[in-house]
Design a protein around this nucleic acid. Sequence first.
DNA 1: CGCGGCTTTGATGTTCATCAAGTAAAGTGG
DNA 2: CCACTTTACTTGATGAACATCAAAGCCGCG
Lengths: 231, 231
Amino acid sequence: MELNLNKCDCSLCEFKTIAFEDLNTNEMISLCGYKTEKNYKKGEVIVCKGDEITDFLYLKSGLVKLYKAGKDGKDQIISIAKPFDFVSLVSIFSDANYNFSISALEDSTVCSVDLPFIKNLISSNGKFALNIMSKMSRNFDKIIDGALNLQTKHLRGRIAHILLFFSNEIYKCGEFEIPLSRKEIAQLIDMTTENVIRILSEFRTDKLIEIHGKNTVILDDKKLQSIAEHG
Amino acid sequence: MELNLNKCDCSLCEFKTIAFEDLNTNEMISLCGYKTEKNYKKGEVIVCKGDEITDFLYLKSGLVKLYKAGKDGKDQIISIAKPFDFVSLVSIFSDANYNFSISALEDSTVCSVDLPFIKNLISSNGKFALNIMSKMSRNFDKIIDGALNLQTKHLRGRIAHILLFFSNEIYKCGEFEIPLSRKEIAQLIDMTTENVIRILSEFRTDKLIEIHGKNTVILDDKKLQSIAEHG
DNA sequence: CGCGGCTTTGATGTTCATCAAGTAAAGTGG
DNA sequence: CCACTTTACTTGATGAACATCAAAGCCGCG
């Protein structure tokens, strides 16, 4: 049976640097057979907490959020993954089921590789195993660091932080559309929707940013930086 | 803190279930050669942020804290590791240097295995690799979960939580000595020293706990549980 | 003894969540 | 396409939760 009618050649895919750079030719060919690509529309749920973990996922394009769903829409966002990031986090090797959920913040393409196949690769290719561990490890560090940082900051500092996050890390541009609702921003940096709005308004009257409809423009990068660090 | 002379036989060590259960006889013998045990006194620093990572560490006995050191003693405690826990977290596979610190909360014995040797094992023994990944993965999940949980709780809930943590998970006993100073408790659950004390006092007047010198006694487990969940 | 660190309690002020209410935007059904 | 509903956004007022500041008691240690 042919799984892949989209006749990709993973060995040419720029995304193999995510983890697959250490595979030999044969392994690379197998990989293509165990791989599928899926597209998700903005807002679609990709993984639901409790789902069985059958695949190793990474993001090819778009933007997704990893989150824990709580009661009455009180979700908590764990992290935001951009292309080249793992989506599956580390947890896929610990449990049979996901203990968090994933959904698309923008139209996204997810590459999905059969998990038993990946485990097999880990068993048989030591370099690959170490590479994966190192990548996941770094992912982990970033999330922990983010969580600890949050705790030290006041609300203004947190807002400044995510504005710079989107500007510098995601869009690499001073003008962009925040792919999160105000509520989602609140869930990401642990505060209330009202305060997100309030502080964005403050920043606007202080001429640190401009907001035109959906568009956000960073006006004073340096001051925001300073607020993010010391505010 | 004397280095012992490694006369141990790791194949008999109950701690091999931490990760080494999949090693064959030869690998087990090598392991003993690459392993050292070190003892640390309560309060001693085991690893300092920035130290080169040369070994894979796990805790044989005692209790340690992993923390990020901040300015003027404003540390943040990432997690508390008990015997059978990894000490090195996942980060040892991502970076050449530690980006957190570790110190002993009680007199502790740490087992230390040469990291290149471990990496070698990962490369050559697929079962071992998967096992390690799964264990570290679970570790990661626990820490993330803890961090997210903190965010949802008020101060009283957090205090109730760590009281139960020590009672149920660490000492498995309703009467124990908290191995942390009030300040350290504050660092662990992100609040001020004064409020830790204040709330402990409240709990005492509410007959939820008793405090005799260093000793803490849990009086009303159920009520604490309820505060931890809904407070 | 006296010094410094840890602990405790109280008083004060700030930050932030909650509540309320109103506007804008976006989807829904006739 | 328009009325209708719902969802997102916004602003202000209020009070609660919490940090900060201050001061005093306690304890171990040189």
